[in-house]
Design a binder for these strands. Structure first.
Lengths: 217, 217
DNA sequence: GTCTAATAAGTAAGTGCTTACTTACCTTCT
DNA sequence: AGAAGGTAAGTAAGCACTTACTTATTAGAC
C-alpha cells in the first residue's frame, strides 16, 4: 500500500498496465543511468518500482528489451523531437545574422539541457562505451544534424565575408567540445565545482565569444 | 603450449610470477576497457591469458583488486608520470612566449596520447561513470594540474597585455573541451571519420588558432 | 443496483545457469 | 627435495527469467 503523504491524494497500490509500465521505465532509467546495463539487476528495478520481478518481465520480455525501450524513448525525447534551431529566438538570430546570439543561445540551451537530464547524458556515455546500436543511432540522427546545421550557417557567414575560411566541421567540433566537455566535467568529475564555478550563462557567453573572435575576419 | 610463430624464439608455457602477473594485467586492461567492470568476467580474463581462473586469483585476491591495480597502473603511467610541460619543446615555447607553439604542441601531444591509448580513455570514462575513486584521483592529481599550469600561463600573458581578460579556467576548459571531445568522437562515435576527417596536426592547429584568436587582445 | 464471469494486475517460489572465489592436488624448475 | 607455477573440480551466492497461482477491477446480463 503506497500512500502519498502530506496530501489528500491517496495512491492505491494497483496501477493500470500503462501506468505501471511507464513507472518501471522511469525507475529503470535512473538505475541504468547510475549503474550501466551490467551493473543493474532486474531484481533491483522491481524492488525500486515496488513490484515483483515477474511484473518487470510481464511488461518487458527481457532486460535487453527494457534497456532498448529506455534508449529508444530517451533518444526520441531528448534528440530528434525538438532540434535547437526550431526555437524562435534562434530563428530570428539566424535571420538577422546575429552570430553572437546564435551561438550564445545554442550554448545556453545545450548546457541547460545537459543539466536537466543528467540521466540521459550518463546513459548516452554508458551506451556508447558498451557500443550499443542506439548510441550510434543518436549520433547519426541528432549529432550529425547539428554539424550540418551549424556547419551550413558558418559556411554562409564565410561566404558573406564575416568569418575566416576555417573548415566548418572543425569549428562545430570546437564549439560542441567546449559545451559537452563543460557539462561532462560538471556531471562526472567536478560536481562540487572546485575547478571552475560559473553559471551556464557565463560559460555560454565566454565560449561563444572565444569561438566567434577565434573565427571572425 | 604457446609458441611465437615466425621467429626462432619459443615461449614456453610456464612464466615467472612477475611475468604472469603483468600478462594478466595487460589482458585485463583490454577486457575492462572494452566491457567495463561489470561486463568483464574473471573467467574470460583467465581464458584470454591462457591460464586457469585460479591463477588470476593467485595474483589478485579479488576482481576489484585487479581493477584497482589496473587503474592505479594506468593513472600513474598515463598521468602523473610525465606532464606535458616537461617536454623541452614546450618549455622553450613557454619561455619565448610563443603562444601558438605552446597551445599547438600541447594539443598535438594530447591528441596523440589519446589515440595511442584508447584503452586508457575508455577505462577513464567507464570508471568515471562507475564513480570509482581512482577516476576522481586522476582528475584531482592530473587534470587539476593542467588547469593550474595552463591557467597560470594565461594569467601571465594577460598581465603582459597579450590576452584579453577572460577567466583563465574558462579558457582552459574551452581548449581541453575541443581536444578531449575531438578524441572522444573519434573513439566512441565516429570511428570511420564520416563527420570530420582531419589529421591530429590539423585539428590541433585549428583549435589553437581558434582559441588564441578568440582571447587575444 | 447486484451478481457474475472474464480479464488484468499482481506475487511467491521456483528454474537452470553464471558468477566470483576456493580447495586440494599436480607439475616443473632449480 | 622443496618451492613456485599451474590446474580440475568444486562452492555458495546471484543472475535473468518462468511457472503456477491469487487478488482486484470491470463489463454486461438480469
Amino acid at each position: 500500500m503506497i500512500k502519498e503523504l502530506g496530501t489528500n491524494e491517496v495512491v492505491t497500490s494497483r496501477m493500470s498496465g500503462d501506468e505501471r509500465r511507464s513507472q518501471i521505465l522511469q525507475v529503470a532509467i535512473r538505475l541504468f543511468s547510475q549503474n550501466g546495463f551490467n551493473g543493474t539487476t532486474t531484481k533491483e528495478i522491481a524492488r525500486m518500482a515496488g513490484v515483483s520481478e515477474a511484473m518487470v518481465f510481464r511488461h518487458f520480455a527481457t532486460k535487453s528489451e527494457l534497456y532498448h525501450a529506455i534508449l529508444d524513448y530517451k533518444v526520441c525525447e531528448g534528440g530528434t523531437k525538438n532540434p535547437p534551431w526550431e526555437n524562435p529566438v534562434m530563428k530570428r538570430a539566424i535571420e538577422e545574422r546575429d552570430d553572437y546570439a546564435v551561438f550564445y543561445n545554442f550554448g545556453v540551451g545545450a548546457l541547460l539541457h545537459h543539466k536537466e537530464d543528467v540521466d540521459f547524458m550518463r546513459l548516452l556515455f554508458y551506451s556508447a562505451l558498451d557500443e550499443h546500436e542506439l548510441s550510434q543511432m543518436f549520433f547519426d540522427q541528432f549529432v550529425s544534424r547539428i554539424y550540418e546545421f551549424i556547419g551550413s550557417y558558418i559556411r554562409q557567414r564565410q561566404a558573406e565575408g564575416a568569418m575566416r575560411e576555417v573548415e566548418p566541421g572543425i569549428v562545430v567540433r570546437a564549439f560542441l567540445g567546449m559545451l559537452i566537455h563543460h557539462s561532462l566535467n560538471n556531471i562526472l568529475w567536478d560536481k562540487k565545482r572546485r575547478l571552475l564555478d560559473v553559471t551556464d550563462e557565463k560559460a555560454a557567453r565566454s565560449f561563444a565569444e572565444i569561438l566567434l573572435n577565434g573565427i571572425k575576419k
